[in-house]
């Protein structure tokens, strides 16, 4: 199975009311691959990302993870989500739990790992993302960049097969963006399979194996970052890159 792709979206369609937000999406993510999804606002890239762990329910097509189709509800779905790390735009750290508890909650409650072992592992991860000294604090006491790095540690604590990033730096002040991106680049280097929705073109250039460009709910173009940024094929992509790279 190791050669088989990890995430496969096959003819996926989704509507919000009349709005066709995902149109016949076909996407394959291989093990260890870093796929960056870019595109204008409202192009469906966040919805695509969230569909992979079924935070958004699709109406047609299929999504498989490691060969298994996404379960509909209940325990099986929860088990699948445990295998998929997710990092949100607004961090979503558990507000009533300390930084350490945020990271140990999943391992203890979902994986059944002993508290001491979970805490040891959590401290390692917090050190790795550079917020080890904040373990006893509450999320509200941390800066946005620190919170997002904790969120990454929280997802990593579950030892996921794939990590989903839904615009992880869009809610951050400019000087905090790089500290989060550094952690993500490091993660990519360690061979983590990643799907990253972002507006950070620098990250796409340095860390991505493949860039997926979406517009109006459809995948318009897919290419290596080099090819995509220097030689975009579609008018839609040329127009988008023209707007964002001008400054």
């Amino acid at each position: 199975m190791t050669g088989a792709p990890l995430v496969v979206l096959d003819h996926v369609d989704k509507w919000f009311g009349d709005l066709h937000v995902l149109q016949d999406i076909n996407l394959t993510v291989d093990r260890g691959e870093v796929v960056v999804v870019i595109g204008p606002s409202g192009s469906g890239k966040s919805t695509l990302c969230r569909a992979i762990n079924r935070l958004e329910v699709i109406q047609q097509g299929s999504i498989t993870l490691d060969g298994q189709p996404l379960p509909a509800e209940g325990k099986e779905l929860a088990n699948l989500r445990a295998e998929v790390g997710m990092v949100f735009q607004s961090f979503n750290l558990f507000a009533h739990k300390t930084i350490l508890e945020n990271v140990t909650l999943g391992p203890i409650k979902v994986r059944g790992i002993k508290k001491e072992a979970a805490e040891t592992r959590a401290r390692e991860l917090l050190d790795r993302v550079g917020v080890g000294h904040q373990a006893a604090k509450y999320p509200a006491q941390l800066s946005g960049g620190q919170q997002q790095r904790v969120a990454i540690a929280r997802a990593l604590a579950m030892e996921p097969k794939v990590m989903l990033f839904d615009e992880p730096t869009s809610a951050l002040d400019p000087e905090m963006i790089s500290e989060v991106l550094e952690v993500m680049v490091d993660l990519a280097k360690r061979g983590m399979t990643m799907v990253v929705v972002t507006h950070e073109m620098g990250f796409a250039r340095t860390a991505a194996d493949r860039v997926v460009f979406m517009a109006d709910g459809a995948i318009v173009e897919e290419n290596t970052p080099d090819e995509f940024f220097t030689n975009p094929q579609s008018d839609r992509a040329k127009d988008f890159l023209g707007k964002i790279l001008k400054h």
């Binding site: 929860a78 997710m86 969120a151 579950m158």
Partner: peptide, 8 residues
């Protein structure tokens, strides 16, 4: 969503 995402 974050709670669901860690598999609870």
């Amino acid at each position: 969503e974050a709670a669901r995402a860690i598999g609870l």
